[in-house]
Amino acid sequence: MNRYEVFLKKLGRDEFRHAGSLDAADPEMAVMYARETHNRRAEGSEMWLVDRRHVLVADPESMAVNDQKPHRHNDGSRVAARRKENRNSEA
């Protein structure tokens, strides 16, 4: 048995989204099973399956570094506060 990741796309402009995974003996059977395990109520109109062994996995350690960079998080609140301050001083 091998593991496959299932992605579904609804009709329209939505992107493909991860729907879950399944185990199957080979790719052909994986596609056959996915129809019932993840699309039995027609949740999507298109489906991708990816062999888990073909997924490139990033190192979580290397990703975690970016959590320490608050200057990259701009929610606009500082700009809004400054503009409010300016408005008040003009009045």
């Binding site: 185990d23 199957a24 056959m32 019932e36 395990t37």
Partner: peptide
Amino acid sequence: PFLEEDLAFCS
């Protein structure tokens, strides 16, 4: 015999 087959057969 396994979950995926259980679902397919019952479908």
